[in-house]
Amino acid sequence: MMVWDSWSAFWAMGGRGFFVWGSYGVLALCVIAELVVLSRARKRALLAIAEDNPTE
């Protein structure tokens, strides 16, 4: 059960799709960017410790 008659009505958001999806889209971009930056920073930190301490 949902409030929309169709998917196109959902994406249109009553003619306000630009504002609604512009908001949700930028939030999604921010979250993805933060996750990528966090993972890269963690890998860099682990790599730095591994390079300081070669196993060989």
Partner: peptide, 23 residues
């Protein structure tokens, strides 16, 4: 990173070692 604890972490944690060598 200069502490013995961090060194032991990278040595003991296979995932950490794995991640680092993959990089």
């Amino acid at each position: 990173r200069d502490t013995a604890w961090a060194r032991s972490l990278i040595g003991a944690s296979t995932s950490g070692r794995h991640e680092a060598t993959a990089m």
